[in-house]
C-alpha cells in the first residue's frame, strides 16, 4: 500500500477548492484593471498605448502567488484560478497571458481615452435607464476626461455670462 504516486507518469488532479494557475477569459475581460490594483506581487500589469489605442492586460503567472485576490475583485468573472498547477515550460513566454482591448476614441478631440470600449459597454449595461437618460450619459461616455472637463467649464462660463448679461 504505497502512498507515493508515480507522478509525473500518472495524471494528478487537484481538488476543486485548489487555487491554481490564473487564466483570463478574453471574452469577458473589460480591461478595468481592478485586478491590477489588487494584485500584491504585481503579476498583472495594465499597459495603455495611446498611439495605437489599445490597452493590454498582461498576466505573468511566473510572478503570481495564487492568492486569488484578482478573482475576488473582478467585476465580470473574467479572471479565474483554474485547478491546474503544472507551470513548467522551456519558454518563459508561455507564462504570460495578454488580453488586448480597444480604447475609446474621444468623439470631440479624437484622442484615445483611458478607458476601454468594453468598460463603457459594461457601464451602460449595468446603470439604470433613468440615470442614463437624465445625465445624457450615452453621449458623454465617449468623450475623454479633458474634453468633458472643458465642456463643463465652457458650459459654466457660458451660463455665468448669460447670468451676468
Amino acid at each position: 500500500m504505497p502512498v507515493t504516486l508515480r507522478y509525473p507518469f500518472t495524471e494528478l488532479e487537484a481538488p476543486p477548492e485548489y487555487r491554481g494557475l490564473p487564466h483570463i477569459d478574453p471574452k469577458l475581460c473589460i480591461g478595468c484593471g481592478a485586478c491590477v490594483n489588487a494584485c500584491p506581487p504585481d503579476a498583472i500589469l495594465r499597459i495603455d498605448d495611446y498611439d495605437r489605442g489599445t490597452r493590454k492586460i498582461v498576466l505573468d503567472i511566473g510572478r503570481c502567488i495564487r492568492c486569488a485576490r484578482c478573482e475576488e475583485v473582478c467585476p465580470t468573472g473574467a479572471i479565474r484560478l483554474t485547478n491546474l498547477f503544472e507551470a513548467a515550460s522551456p519558454d518563459r513566454r508561455d507564462h504570460i497571458e495578454v488580453v488586448e482591448l480597444r480604447l475609446v476614441r474621444c468623439k470631440v478631440c479624437g484622442n484615445y481615452t483611458d478607458f476601454t470600449e468594453r468598460q463603457v459597454k459594461k457601464a451602460l449595461q449595468i446603470l439604470p435607464k433613468e440615470i442614463l437618460e437624465e445625465e445624457a450619459l450615452e453621449e458623454k461616455v465617449f468623450i475623454c476626461r479633458n474634453c468633458r472637463r472643458k465642456g463643463t467649464v465652457d458650459a459654466t462660463i457660458n451660463a455665468t455670462k448669460e447670468v451676468v448679461l
Binding site: M1, P2, V3, T4, L5, R6
Partner: peptide, 9 residues
C-alpha cells in the same frame, strides 16, 4: 526499505 516506508520506490 521503500516498502517499509510505504513508498513505491
Amino acid at each position: 526499505k521503500a516498502k517499509i516506508q510505504y513508498r513505491v520506490g
